[in-house]
Write a protein that binds this DNA or RNA. Structure first.
Length: 195
DNA sequence: TAGAGGATTGAT
DNA sequence: TCAATCCTCTAC
């Protein structure tokens, strides 16, 4: 089943982040299809300081987070890495799920070409790496799922026991909100990024 | 308009 | 442990 705006329009961003685990993310960039199973996500909400749109902060960058559910929010981090989020909740409610890692299943050779320097067994284990492997750039910022360029297929439900919740990574500046257990990953999966 | 800093990563 | 690297936001 193809995930559409109805899936992302629900109000609990953490629930959506958990349900995305086990789904398969595909891209078709330069007419080349690549994809993999989502194994790690993080949830972000305007209610907490880890979020770019904290306290409904609307800027040129965060504008897309106020858009329709299922919209892609791609931004540049540390001047080098594109990170990909999917906007959730209703329009005008800025919440999103960050995709942090996938387990490659489709177009492995294409991904390796895109990331010549990275070891094959760590190709997509990290938010900056998976976007490079899948060919995701800020050109995709603002497009809606599903699209011809990027889409997500829902697979069988992951058992609760296989999902681990921990604190999110790299948001020490968020104070108490950094302690929220809003990072989710599949237990014992080799492709989960390291802290 | 200048300056500081960041949802990362790979090399040292 | 640190540099790469540049966009975004804030303060002036």
């Amino acid at each position: 089943m193809l995930l559409n705006s109805a899936f992302f329009e629900r109000t609990h961003v953490t629930q959506i982040a958990k349900e995305l685990l086990g789904c398969t993310l595909f891209t078709k960039i330069d007419n080349q299809v690549t994809g993999g199973i989502i194994v790690e996500t993080e949830a972000y909400s305007y209610k907490e300081r880890g979020c770019h749109a904290y306290n409904m902060k609307r800027t040129a960058r965060t504008q897309v987070m106020f858009g329709k559910p299922g919209t892609l929010y791609v931004y540049l981090c540390y001047g080098m890495y594109s990170l990909v989020n999917i906007v959730t909740n209703k329009e005008e409610v800025p919440e999103a799920v960050l995709i942090r890692a996938i387990e490659p299943t489709e177009g492995l050779n294409i991904m390796q070409t895109r990331c010549a320097k990275i070891k094959a067994n760590k190709l997509t284990a990290g938010p900056g790496k998976l976007t490079r492997a899948l060919g995701i750039t800020r050109k995709l910022n603002g497009i809606e799922l599903p699209s011809d360029l990027i889409w997500i297929e829902k697979e069988e439900k992951i058992p609760k026991a296989a999902v681990v919740s921990t604190t999110r990574i790299g948001i020490d500046y968020a104070g108490d909100d950094a302690q929220l257990p809003w990072r989710f990953y599949l237990r014992e999966n080799l492709w989960v990024s390291k802290k």
